[in-house]
């Protein structure tokens, strides 16, 4: 028996919007720790890891570890039927091949349930090693989204370079080149507007902008994004989900031939 009651149901709606275009089908794993997912895109270039900790749910019952295979597009269709202020409860019985999403309006005058078929998914679980990153950049998520969108109108790849001068995003395409430099800036009114750069040593890596733009669909989940870079490691683009956990996107670099 599984029953997870999320008062801030809009978080789940936003999570689905953030990952449904990257991943088609995925197993949601439910354990005492929380509700989690790890999945790669179809070309195995990017990986998404989601964790919503059990403490973040108003009610969290998970009698035994359960893995539920879902088509994310179909799940998104169902969650779109929930209002932004609705409380969402996820329910599943042991051995059932369906999951139920229950939506309650804030004043309890409307209750809806949507039952979705589960699917069997053979997914590979990858071990993500703890790593010391050469550079970690925290910046406003909207600023990062803007840069990725702007650069993708010029080129297909972005070179992200961190030096003591700041973080530079560069691209080149048929019509020309573009460089955006963000310097560390902690003299802002609100902490989420700051750009903070922790650099152990300079690093420069190249990534496909198509994936970066896909990751920025998580922007509504968090005011800030944290980007971790190391030579010869996938970049980590992390959006923290307030009080609950995180969504992390890993993207393998491109290497010049």
């Amino acid at each position: 028996m599984l029953e997870l009651r999320l008062v801030q149901g809009s978080l789940l709606k936003k999570v689905l919007e953030a990952i449904k275009d990257l991943v088609n089908d995925a197993n949601f794993d439910c354990s005492a720790t929380g509700f989690s997912l790890q999945a790669m895109d179809s070309s195995h270039v990017a990986l998404v890891a989601l964790l919503l900790r059990s403490e973040g749910f108003e009610h969290y019952r998970c009698d035994r570890n359960l893995s539920m295979g879902m088509n994310l597009n179909n799940m998104s269709k169902m969650l779109k039927c929930a209002g932004n202020d609705d409380i969402i409860t996820i329910k599943a019985d042991d051995g059932s091949d369906t999951v139920t999403f229950m939506f309650e309006s804030p004043n309890q005058d409307k209750i809806a349930d949507f039952e979705m078929k589960l699917m069997d998914i053979d997914s590979e679980h990858l071990g993500i090693p703890e790593a010391e990153y050469q550079a970690i950049v925290r910046m406003p998520s909207s600023e990062f989204a803007r840069i990725c969108k702007d650069l993708s109108s010029i080129g297909d790849t972005v070179v992200i370079s961190v030096t003591k001068e700041g973080v530079k995003f560069s691209t080149r395409g048929d019509i020309g080149t573009a460089n955006v430099v963000c310097r560390q800036n902690t003299t802002v009114d609100k902490p989420e507007e700051a750009t903070v750069i922790e650099m152990q040593e300079p690093v420069s890596l190249t990534f496909a902008l198509r994936y970066m733009n896909s990751f920025t669909k998580a922007t509504p989940l968090s005011g800030t994004v944290t980007i971790s870079l190391s030579s010869d490691l996938p970049i980590v683009v992390e959006y923290k989900i307030a009080e609950m956990g995180y969504i992390r996107f890993y993207l393998a670099p491109k290497i010049e031939d």
Binding site: M40, V45, H125, L126, P234, Y250, A252, I255, E256, D257
Partner: peptide, 14 residues
């Protein structure tokens, strides 16, 4: 030209 690596080059299956 550049080569796109895959995630499985860096992270191994459990």
């Amino acid at each position: 030209d550049s080569k796109q690596y895959t995630i499985t080059k860096f992270f191994s299956k459990i």
